[in-house]
Design a protein around this nucleic acid. Structure first.
Lengths: 229, 229
DNA sequence: CTTATTTCTAAGCGTTTGCTTAGTCTTCCC
DNA sequence: GGGAAGACTAAGCAAACGCTTAGAAATAAG
């Protein structure tokens, strides 16, 4: 079989091969021989670098979850305005699940194959991610920027939309990760019931000092802003 | 192992056992011995009633997809008003994926385990489901009841939300299928940019008689309509 | 050079896999 | 009763499974 990825060290090649295989056929549908041969090695080579097949899954899952949590935290930390936070989180989360759909599929759909101990550890990271999203929606609701009767369920729906991108996204599709993310940002504003003006505290002066380019701030115009490019 | 389900005929017990097993551990994570013993039978009994393990998956998947398509079509057929159609579809779809999360997990996450021929057949049903949802959003957009720049992507997001319920739903959770469906109906109205009032009987005829009737109304109600029960 | 260490393979161990075979038991029709 | 048909099991087969062993090859240090 053709070795996967550009020739780096064997350890990385095995990991990349495992990601591809687990994503394509699932953990239980993948054999250690699949992984080894996709990395251009003999079956035994896997055990020089990794303890077991489950260990590979654990490392992939932990790394993927940690990445996601970090990306969400950075997005939330990028602003004090809930609207900006929401947009940053949804954009980053969506792009991550589209561009990284291969590993995201393992992260989100192979949890049951983890050992009980490993699952417990991963579940804690997932709760961290959910907590961040809930925090953004609650903050927006608290300052009147969002109108939602259940921030908890709305946050769940927002995560749900992003996660499911990993399921349906195809590289051959017409919509690329950025375009999907743009659209999902608009959908997110609708979901949380974003109000026209960010109502509180400082106005545009402090807000425009953010890292990202200050977009026009009419949150929900009569004509939808959703890009059609 | 304890036999699954109330003692009906062996064939049904095997099918129910397969649904439980596939949903819990995935197709490849389930052995034919798991299924047989969960149905309280010997491993060979499975082959009296089914051709193969994959045949069981196929039957479960086909039945589940057919059910979903039917439910979506009935919902769309229940009204001529796109708003009502949307609410009916989202409600039925959401409840289906919550209450039937076990089989819905197989339907949505075990497609890769189907044989190529079976997958082709199932994919056709899935396209039918997508077509129905897209039709509703497009119809709503056409009569000015919805505001969305991409009915296609909005329809995808609506399906996405519903499908992902099967992933996160837990029977022990606080929110039951109906309550989630109520909430998701409100979210759906926001997603499609539903205009303020679903047309009443009188206005409906008036509005639908005109070709466009571009209602310049507020995109979202100032007070959220999401029920807080 | 020798020696130690690391990376990898060929071979294969013991178990589990999907599925088959051969035969038993029950049911139903005559 | 006899006999056919269907439902089921005990036993097991060939292949595939996760993983180990023994040793070769390569590298580096003294």
């Amino acid at each position: 079989m053709i070795p996967i990825g550009n020739a780096t060290d064997a350890r990385s090649r095995l990991l990349a091969a495992a990601v591809e295989s687990f994503a394509a056929r699932g953990f239980h549908g993948t054999t250690t021989r699949d992984i080894a041969s996709a990395a251009g090695m003999s079956p035994a080579a896997l055990y020089v670098h990794y303890k077991s097949k489950e260990d590979l899954l654990y490392l992939i899952s932990r790394n993927g979850h940690a990445q996601t949590l970090q990306l969400v935290r950075e997005a939330v930390g990028s602003s004090n305005d809930p609207v900006e936070q929401l947009l940053a989180v949804v954009r980053a989360f969506t792009i991550h699940h589209a561009r990284g759909h291969t590993s995201a599929r393992i992260v989100n759909y192979e949890l049951a194959a983890l050992s009980p101990d490993h699952l417990k550890e991963i579940a804690a990271i997932r709760r961290g991610i959910e907590k961040e999203m809930r925090g953004v929606v609650e903050a927006g609701a608290a300052v009147g920027a969002f109108r939602t009767s259940s921030p908890q369920m709305t946050a769940l729906a927002l995560l749900s939309l992003g996660i499911d991108v990993a399921r349906w996204y195809r590289d051959e599709g017409e919509w690329g990760p950025e375009k999907i993310a743009d659209y999902y940002c608009e959908l997110a504003l609708r979901l949380v019931g974003a109000q026209r003006e960010p109502p509180t505290m400082e106005t545009a002066t402090t807000l425009s000092s953010g890292t990202t380019a200050p977009q026009t701030r009419a949150v929900l115009p009569d004509q939808t802003r959703i890009s059609s490019t």
